[in-house]
Write a protein that binds this DNA or RNA. Structure first.
Lengths: 220, 220
DNA sequence: GTCGCTGTTGTACGAATGTAAAACAAATCT
DNA sequence: AGATTTGTTTTACATTCGTACAACAGCGAC
């Protein structure tokens, strides 16, 4: 029997290959069918190698969740940070980014939901979720605060957190349904719906946020 | 070898026992560890019986999802339907019900998320989800409409649907985080946050919805 | 060029999985 | 009370799973 040709990769490269293969398998096979052999094959590697990088397959799946959340929060950090943006435009960008690719994604919402389903089963998942949620809440609060200040409205931390909780709920819920692509309505309506509702929740004057929407025919 | 004593149940009874055992196992073992033998044991039944009620274990899990969604939408139908309620109070009740048990529940959100994670994998899950979502959206729109009318605001179907989409997003997102019990803030704040935000989204005068909140020390 | 290190492969194994089908027994009917 | 039906248990089996471990080979050091 002749052995397979292979090349040695850096630890980090191989590790992220495995993590991404794990996510890909979980997303389109489901958690139960995402076996060690399938993941290894997708990573272009033999199954035994998994144990060289992770103590167990379960640890690898956990690491993949952490990897996914890291990607998602990093993407969130980058949105709405243009230096020339007014506070209102920055917040509008931040919100609207959730309703366009790559954030709006069937794969992402599938993974997100699958892992949320493990929060009660395994405390490690609960920790990862909590940190990701906390970070998103903080990012949101940091973009709400200057808007309130600019509008001459009360902007103490407690109020910002309360508004961030509400806005995060709105964004999450719309993001899930939009990403699932159920076809009950056109997902392109979501940025408008979200910005309009956010504007209302923050009690901003009409069009404070919606005026920063990118017209539909200019979207990439 | 002496056989286990058993009693014969009605088809419906045994079937729902199996479905509930399936949900219980999925919720606290995870989808991958919820095996046929574990589910059967939890239902007080031997594993072979599953195939007498369902073509396969996978079909049973699918049926369990449909069963869960049926329960949840039935509960939603019942909330905010008191005959003496004003439209505003009915809508407030409907919204607030999502943030108290039995709707607010770690088990329920775990199951919900686990199954959402299968929507991309298996079209049957997508269908069940779509129907549940559509029904919830319709219930919400039906409770929004009379409120808009009573406030003398435009209440055409398109506007009601748009508002229902936004409100459903808000409710879903807050329900998920609240049910997960991450401990980042007190979940008892959620009804207030949700009603306040809903009031804003619908552009209702302050306290139109929040005034119908049940004071915290009177909640059961 | 070849030596040594170790990343990687291939194989093997016990446990667990979903399922099929035969044996049994509880409830119903006569 | 005996016969019949069929819901239920039990045993068995092929398959797949995660994992252990020995053998191999790519790559840098010298």
């Amino acid at each position: 029997m002749t052995r397979r040709a292979y090349s040695r990769l850096s630890q980090d490269q191989r590790r992220t290959d495995l993590l991404e293969a794990t996510l890909a398998c979980v997303a389109d096979l489901g958690l139960d069918k995402a076996g060690a052999r399938q993941i290894a094959e997708r990573a272009g590697v033999s199954a035994g190698l998994i144990r060289h990088y992770f103590p167990s397959k379960e640890d690898m799946v956990r690491a993949a969740y952490a990897y996914l959340m890291g990607q998602m929060t990093a993407a969130a950090e980058d949105s709405g940070t243009g230096e020339t943006l007014t506070p209102e435009a920055a917040l509008a960008d931040f919100i609207a980014a959730n309703f366009a690719p790559p954030s709006l994604s069937g794969v992402k919402v599938s993974l997100w939901a699958t892992f949320i389903g493990r929060v009660r089963v395994d405390p490690a998942y609960a920790d990862i979720h909590r940190e990701g949620y906390r970070e998103f809440l903080d990012l949101l609060a940091a973009r709400i605060h200057p808007v309130l200040v600019a509008q001459g409205r009360p902007a103490d931390p407690a109020q910002c957190q309360r508004l961030a909780i509400a806005l995060n709920g709105l964004i999450d819920g719309l993001w899930i349904e939009g990403s699932l692509g159920h076809g009950l309505y056109d997902a392109r309506r979501l940025p408008g719906i979200a910005l309009d509702a956010a504007e209302a929740i923050l009690r901003l004057p009409d069009t404070t946020l919606t005026r920063h929407m990118v017209p539909e025919d200019e979207r990439t």
